[in-house]
């Protein structure tokens, strides 16, 4: 199989993100392959999934994913398999682990901080505005009445 991958690699002119040659005939399998592919990063590209990328390396990875599907692996197993070989970098959705707690907690923490700040702001003691004296009010009305 390795050799076949090599053939595919050499044959394909690097031009097209997905080409029909690699696709499954079964639409359900193909749908699965794409769902998994959208979670995987093309290693050379900037935040593109392997299904959106033209690079040869993305194609290799797609072929690997399809191989694993054919071999009967579950989606999780496939992602774990790829992660094993290429590291966390290949996962577009970073794993939840020691070095990414901060990342995953960010939305929660920000929401909390925002909520607390909001509550604090709304509950802060407020001075009622001092009422204007009648004379001041008249002066202000005069000021405001003058129309250009």
């Amino acid at each position: 199989m390795r050799v076949l991958v090599l053939i595919l690699m050499l044959l394909a002119p690097p031009a097209f993100a997905l080409d029909p040659g690699e696709m499954f005939a079964d639409p359900a399998l193909e749908e699965r392959a794409r769902a998994i592919g959208r979670e995987l990063r093309c290693l050379k590209c900037r935040n593109q999934s392997i299904f959106d990328s033209n690079a040869g390396i993305a194609k290799d990875l797609r072929v690997v994913v399809r191989e694993r599907i054919t071999a009967g692996d579950s989606d999780r197993e496939i992602l774990a398999y790829v992660q094993d070989r290429f590291g966390d970098y290949v996962l577009l959705k970073p794993p939840v682990a020691g070095h990414t707690y901060a990342l995953w907690l960010t939305p929660v923490v920000l929401m909390l901080v925002g909520g607390l700040a909001f509550a604090a702001y709304m509950r802060r003691p407020r001075r009622a505005p001092e009422a204007l004296s009648e004379a001041d009010r008249a002066a202000a009305q005069a000021l405001l009445k003058e129309t250009p």
């Binding site: 979670e39 990063r41 935040n47 999934s49 966390d88 996962l91 959705k93 070095h99 990414t100 939305p107």
Partner: peptide
């Protein structure tokens, strides 16, 4: 020195 990717799935979820 760890390399990770933060891509569309993360942003879609958060």
């Amino acid at each position: 020195g760890d390399k990770i990717s933060v891509g569309a799935p993360y942003f879609n979820q958060t």
